[in-house]
Design a protein around this nucleic acid. Structure first.
Length: 336
DNA sequence: AAGTCTCGCAACCGCAGCCCA
DNA sequence: ATGGGCTGCGGTTGCGAGACT
């Protein structure tokens, strides 16, 4: 017996979400919380299937999402966790607050995988590739092989010969953080002549998200406002305003005293906020979330293009997630 | 300037697993 | 025990934008 589709797709919209759809979804979830996704589109007045709504929310609209490229620290975490868990992106994502499985999966496939291959490391097994051994793109994930604790990886791995990519860059690993150094720098640094894997997946305990304290060192964070841009997409944006998260916290509670949702109960929790200094609600993330929210609740942005004319913002309006906002633009009341 | 190629990301697809009647 | 409903998850696709010719 065949499984029923999640919805009859007749008359349902697919493809990129519009700002209006985002607004409706946010408004609905703010008011009602996350309930039965199948019912969401109908109740929220959206011509989408529930699955699409859930994906949009979890991967894009959730207020606790970070945006931008993964930091070195996050990349290290991903590599370590992938060595331990394989392609279980949701598990990996659960250890990286503010990151989604989809985001991590994409980053792995587009960035990390290439870097590891360049370094002669099999992205799947996390073992050094023999020059004669092609990459095992279709092998079973390491999870199915020997557990990490049975195959200690705290060892120095030496390449058969220095690896250089097409740009004459030599790649080294130190403390499991991938860094690319110039050839000259490489020559000056004896350590860089070999790959040193001085971490072990055993050293990465599985911890609950609430146990994670992200480093407060801003160097570990994604690039700040002025140039948060992905390498080749239009996702350039600029957050030039600063907001006091506590004011938002207070305002949200005043505006939505009865709404039981994670924005109020969790993400705006000042304790969490302090703990995640540089994390979920740290500096630039605050601004961006607020920006998103402002954009979504402020219809005017769609009409008043002049509002952007005096900024350096190159926001992708069609994706409508990365927007600049102004102090007096937004009120939570407008949502309800 | 125009056409083509490449890359990254958002969104979709379909299966697996859980829950409940 | 079984079947249906729903959500979660991982793999894949399609589009848009930048790079290249």
């Amino acid at each position: 017996m065949g499984r029923q589709p999640c919805c009859d797709k007749v008359g349902l919209k697919q493809g990129p979400w519009t700002a209006d759809e985002d607004k409706k979804l946010i408004k609905f979830i703010l008011t009602n919380g996350q309930c039965c996704w199948r019912a969401v589109p109908k109740l929220a007045g959206l011509l989408r299937c529930g699955k699409s709504c859930r994906l949009r929310w979890t991967n894009y609209l959730r207020p606790d999402l970070k945006r931008g490229l993964l930091s070195e620290y996050e990349e290290k975490m991903v590599i370590d966790l992938h060595a331990q868990l394989g392609n279980r992106w949701s598990k990996i994502a659960s250890n990286l607050p503010g990151r989604t499985d989809n985001e991590i999966k994409n980053h792995w496939n587009t960035h990390i995988k290439k870097k590891l291959k360049k370094m002669g490391i099999d992205p799947l097994t996390h073992k050094t590739l023999s020059p004669l051994t092609p990459p095992t793109d279709h092998q079973s994930p390491p999870l199915l092989a020997k557990p990490a604790h049975e195959t200690p990886q705290t060892e120095e791995l030496t390449f058969p010969k220095p690896i250089e990519d097409q740009n004459n860059e030599t790649i080294s690993i130190q403390s499991s953080t991938i860094t690319e150094v110039s050839k000259d720098e490489h020559e000056e640094d004896e350590q860089s002549k070999r790959i040193v894997v001085d971490f072990c997946t055993d050293e990465v305990p599985l911890i609950e998200p609430h146990e994670i304290l992200l480093p407060s060192d801003n160097n570990m964070l994604p690039p700040l406002s002025s140039s948060c841009s992905s390498s080749s997409t239009s996702s350039t944006y600029d957050i030039s305003t600063n907001y006091n998260i506590n004011l938002i916290h207070e305002e949200l509670h005043q505006s939505l005293p009865s709404v039981d949702n994670q924005w109020c109960s969790s993400s705006f929790n000042s304790t969490n906020y302090n703990n995640f200094n540089g994390g979920l609600w740290g500096d630039e993330e605050d601004d961006e979330f607020i920006s998103n929210l402002s954009m979504l609740i402020n219809d005017q942005y769609e009409l008043d293009t002049a509002i952007y004319s005096d900024t350096t913002l190159a926001a992708d309006l069609t994706q409508c997630s990365k927007m600049l906002m102004y102090d007096d633009d937004w009120k939570f009341e407008q949502l309800l």
